[in-house]
Simulated assay, not measured.
Amino acid sequence: MIERFEMKNFGVNRHIAWEKLAGINVLIGENGSGKTSVLKMLYAVLRSLELNKKGNDPYSLGRILPDKLYWTFQVNKLGELVKKGTESSLRCRMALDGKNIEFEFGSDTNLTIKSLKTDFEESWGNTTVFIPAKEVLSLFSVIIKSREQDKMFGFDDTYLDLVHALSIPPQRGRNSRVFAAGRKNMDRLLGGKAVYDEKNKQWYFKNKNTRFSMGVMSEGIKKLAIFDQLLANRYLSQQSIVFIDEPEASLHPKAISEFMEFLYDMAKNGMQIFLATHSYFVIKKLCLIARREQYSIPFLGLSKDETIPLQYEDMIHGMPDNSIVDESVRLYQDEVDAVLGGEI
C-alpha cells in the first residue's frame, strides 16, 4: 500500500504532499488541474517497481522507470514533465509497504534519470493496474497494432498494460472468498459476463446462452466488465493497487452507487484504490460509505489556480467543500432565480 507520496514541480502542480493514505483515495479538480497526471505518475512508479528485476529479467529500476514514464506520458523528453516556468527539478517521493523510492530530474532531461534512490532491490512483488476513462475491450487489436507493431504514440502504457492484463485467461479453481463475492456482485451489476474469443481475437458479452458483440454494448458495461475479468483471471490480488480515471464515465447514478460499494468491499479487504472523478454521485456515495462504516477515505482537491491552496480532507468527517458541489448549488440557484423571475 502507498502510505504517502510527494511531488514537486510536476505538470501544473508546484507541490503535492499527500499523507495518511488509505484503502480508497479520491482526487477531484477542474479539467487541467492534473488529476490524471498524478494517477499516471503513481502508476508508472509502481509498475516500474513491479518489473524491477522480475524473474530472470536483468533490467533494473534505473532503466525501467524512464522508459515507463516516456511511454505513459508520451513526451519527446522527460524534461517536458517538469512544471513550466520553474528552474527547479521535478521531484517525486513515495513510501510503499514500508520502503521508499525517490527520484528527480530537470527540464533539460532527455530519457535518463540520474538521481534515483530506492529501498527496492528486487521486484515489488504485487500488481497494479490503471483503468482509463475510455474503455479498451473494443479496441484490443487497435491498441496492440498501434503500440507493438507500429511503435506509435496514441495509446499510452496504461492502455497497453491493461490489454496485456486482460489477455490472461480466467483461472480455474476456487477464488478467494472476498473476490468470489465481489464477482457475484459484479455479475449482478453487469447482467452477464465478458468473454474473450482467442480464435477471433474479439471480446463478447454473454448473457446466459446469448452472445453479443462487445462493440454494441454500452461504455459503462465495458468498464465494469474489465474489473470482472481482472478478478476472474486473478491478475488482481488483495494486495493490488488500482487507479481508476473517471469511474463514473457512462454509468447510470444507480450503477455508480453499486460500483462504489463494490470498490469499498475490495478496499476493506486489502486492495488500495485511487479515483479521479468529476462526479457528485461518486463523492456523495463515498462520503456516505465513510460515515456509515467509519472508514477513512482521504480526499485531495487539486486546482490549476496556484493562488488556491490544495485541499486535504477525509470523508469520514463529512462531505468536504469542493467545486463539484459548488457548481451543483450554483445551478440550483440559477433555477430558483429563473422560476422566481418568471413569476414576477
Rank of each mutant, 00 (worst) to 15 (best):
E248G: 01
A165I: 13
F73T: 02
G220R: 10
K77Q: 11
E198S: 15
N110K: 14
G191I: 06
K223R: 15
L263T: 01
S303L: 08
D156E: 08
Q333I: 03
R234D: 10
I297W: 07
S257A: 12
I143V: 13
M266Q: 13
T127R: 15
V75T: 15
F274L: 10
Q294F: 05
F73D: 08
G85D: 11
T72D: 04
V329D: 15
E30K: 13
H252C: 03
N233Q: 12
Q229F: 00
L90D: 10
D57G: 06
A267G: 06
L51F: 12
E135S: 14
V242Q: 01
D108F: 05
A22W: 00
L160R: 12
A165P: 08
D161N: 14
M94K: 04
F227A: 09
K20P: 09
E87A: 14
E246P: 06
W71I: 02
L263F: 13
D245E: 14
R234L: 09
L111G: 07
N9K: 08
K206M: 09
R188N: 15
F105K: 03
K222V: 04
H317C: 06
K268S: 06
F140P: 01
K68L: 13
A276N: 09
L300W: 13
L160T: 11
L230A: 08
M260D: 09
L111W: 05
T112K: 13
I101D: 06
M260C: 15
S48D: 02
F212N: 07
S88K: 15
P309C: 07
E30Y: 03
A225N: 13
W203M: 04
A133G: 12
Q202L: 14
Y204S: 12
H278R: 01
Q239Y: 05
D326M: 11
G318R: 09
W18G: 09
I297A: 04
Y332C: 03
F274G: 04
K117F: 15
F262I: 02
Y43P: 03
M1F: 12
F262D: 02
F281Y: 10
G192D: 04
A17Q: 09
S279G: 01
K117D: 02
T118I: 11
Y70S: 04
G154T: 10
L189F: 10
G32L: 06
I28P: 03
P247G: 03
P298T: 12
K117H: 07
E313G: 04
M152Y: 11
N13A: 11
R91K: 14
V38C: 08
L310I: 13
E335Y: 12
Q229W: 00
N233P: 02
L302W: 06
D97K: 14
D245N: 04
H164T: 00
S167I: 03
K268Q: 10
I283L: 11
S48E: 09
M94P: 01
V38W: 10
E327W: 12
I344E: 14
P169Y: 15
S237Y: 07
N126H: 04
I131K: 05
Y70D: 07
S89T: 12
N207S: 13
S123R: 08
I308K: 15
S88L: 07
L224T: 07
R47V: 02
